[in-house]
C-alpha cells in the first residue's frame, strides 16, 4: 500500500516498536548476515575486558536497519528514495526501540510525488539513538 499525496499532511506520524528487549543473539544474527564481526557486538569478554564497555552493543547499522523496517512498512516496498541517520547513542542488549517517521513536506518533482520524513528512533528511556531523514516516492 503506497502513500498518496492527497491523503498525507505535514505533521502526520507513523510509529512502530522495532525491537522489544534486544537480545545478544540478534546481534550475532546481524553480525553473520552483514559480515561485520567486530567483537564489540558479540564478544562480551573482549568488549568488557579490552574495549572498556559495560557489555556488547548493537551495530549502528542494526539500529538503522530496524529503523528502515518502520519506514518501508510506512511508505511501501521499493518506494524509498533517500534514507540517512546519525547514530546518537549506543544501543544495548535489553533495549526496546521505537521508531517514528514524521511528515515534513509533500512535494512534486518532474511529475513525481515525494514525501519528506523526519526519522527518529528512541530507546525505552526516551533517549534518541538514531536521528535522520528519509524521502519516498508516493502516489498523486
Amino acid at each position: 500500500m503506497a502513500l498518496s499525496a492527497k491523503s498525507l499532511k505535514v505533521g502526520d506520524t507513523h510509529q512502530e516498536v522495532v525491537v522489544d528487549n534486544l537480545t545478544r543473539t540478534q546481534l550475532v544474527q546481524y553480525a553473520g548476515a552483514s559480515g561485520d564481526y567486530n567483537p564489540i557486538h558479540t564478544d562480551e569478554v573482549y568488549t568488557t575486558q579490552v574495549a572498556g564497555y559495560p557489555s556488547v552493543f548493537a551495530h549502528g547499522m542494526l539500529s538503522m536497519g530496524m529503523t528502515g523496517k518502520m519506514l518501508t512498512n510506512y511508505v511501501g516496498d521499493g518506494r524509498l528514495a533517500t534514507f540517512g541517520v546519525r547514530f546518537t547513542r549506543q544501543v544495548w542488549p535489553g533495549d526496546t526501540l521505537t521508531s517514528t517517521a514524521t511528515v515534513q513536506a509533500i512535494r512534486e518533482e518532474d511529475g513525481t510525488h515525494f514525501v519528506d520524513l523526519a526519522v527518529s528512533t528512541i530507546n525505552q528511556d526516551g533517549t534518541e539513538v538514531a536521528s535522520g531523514y528519509a524521502s519516498a516516492r508516493i502516489d498523486a
Partner: peptide, 24 residues
C-alpha cells in the same frame, strides 16, 4: 585471552559508526 592481538599505545576507544546516508 580476552584479545588475540597486542594492543597498541593509548588503548583508545576504537572506531564506531557515526552516520550513514543512502540514495536509492
Amino acid at each position: 585471552e580476552p584479545t588475540g592481538v597486542a594492543r597498541g599505545e593509548g588503548g583508545g576507544g576504537g572506531g564506531l559508526h557515526a552516520e550513514q546516508h543512502y540514495i536509492y
